[in-house]
Design a protein around this nucleic acid. Structure first.
Lengths: 188, 188
DNA sequence: CTACCAGTATACCGAACGGTATACTGGGCT
DNA sequence: AGCCCAGTATACCGTTCGGTATACTGGTAG
């Protein structure tokens, strides 16, 4: 594994376990057997390291998420596909997903929150776009696309959080139960 | 306002805006026009300040929550009462509620997460106790009391988060919609 | 008046922080 | 061989961190 990847990997583990502010760059370097100037050779700053970490780990999420959020006049199908994307992604990258979840609820003015905001908003906007497109076929949803998108994301993350804690499996029955629960809440 | 209260108040605002690790005790003192030895006279340490903050702000939540979680063979009524407790509490203490929400998703080994764990777990245990008691009347829920409690808390916090961001009002229609959505998810 | 004590301030501590100036090293190019 | 340059290390910077030894103050009890 090359140096840059080793640093990103160590940073992810440290940030995930102790938080961004709770981690010293020295500790990340120690984990790799490297020194600080090496880290600062590859990344411009601690913030730059976080930026690179977020960009690298979110990248594989975007294509399948964009695909799943393309509305094809079948909202239940779209929600199933979105759930599958998130279930698959969080299972493949559990450590990063937990870190990303923590960033969602960070104080708004903290450095890590500011760095993560574009990535969090991008997720939300894909979902909002889906619900907005679905308004054409479901008139009663009009004007609530943002609210529905955030509720769906919230419910989805509730399931994933429990799965990350080992109290839930992200299999197909769970997926359909989650979708059904959400659809009931909307159409009733 | 006495010194101790002023420090707790300033700490809440700082912690809520910048996070526990992102806040220096010096800044809290500056906000009050006091100096560090004064803070350390009232609180044994930065961690002790956080402990006192959590104890003081959570205190008014416990009695009504305990009351609402006392099962009386009417689960929908209990859920309504729990929702009302959380809606009322989060509306009355919006800054603290947002801070408390951030603590929920903090890295598990961070100091603030460890300090907050008992209070987070206490909330969960009240809910678990309610769902466990309800199992007697709803056999199909048996063995899922913990999962249902965490899902309910997650959904509830999704609504409150949106309300704290000004995108949702925590009125009675919202409350009944939230309850209905959750009940559908359980009994179907 | 005096003795005391909770509460506050001045001045300071060692440690750790993010970040850097500089020198070294080893593989590829001419 | 001689050169170059990306990548790494040694040693260090100024700043800020959480925390404290000590002294002062103003009100209260004897």
């Amino acid at each position: 594994m090359d140096t840059r990847t080793a640093l990103l990997d160590a940073a992810l583990n440290r940030f995930s376990a102790f938080g961004y502010d709770g981690t010293a760059v020295q500790e990340i370097c120690d984990d790799c057997g490297l020194t600080k100037p090496t880290l600062y050779h590859h990344f411009s700053s601690k913030r730059g390291l976080l930026d690179a970490l977020l960009a690298a780990n979110f990248r594989p999420l975007w294509p399948p998420l964009q695909d799943a959020c393309t509305y094809q006049h079948d909202l239940p199908l779209s929600l199933e596909r979105v759930l599958r994307v998130f279930f698959t992604y969080s299972s493949a990258h559990p450590v990063f997903y937990r870190f990303q979840l923590s960033l969602r609820f960070l104080p708004l003015q903290s450095e890590a929150s500011i760095a993560a905001r574009p990535y969090i908003q991008k997720q939300e906007e894909f979902l909002i776009q889906l619900f907005k497109a679905a308004e054409a076929d479901h008139g009663n949803m009009r004007g609530h696309s943002r609210s529905h998108a955030l509720s769906f994301l919230g419910m989805l993350n509730t399931y994933i959080t429990q799965a990350l804690d080992g109290q839930q499996t992200l299999d197909d029955p769970t997926l359909f139960r989650a979708r059904q629960q959400f659809m009931y809440g909307i159409f009733s």
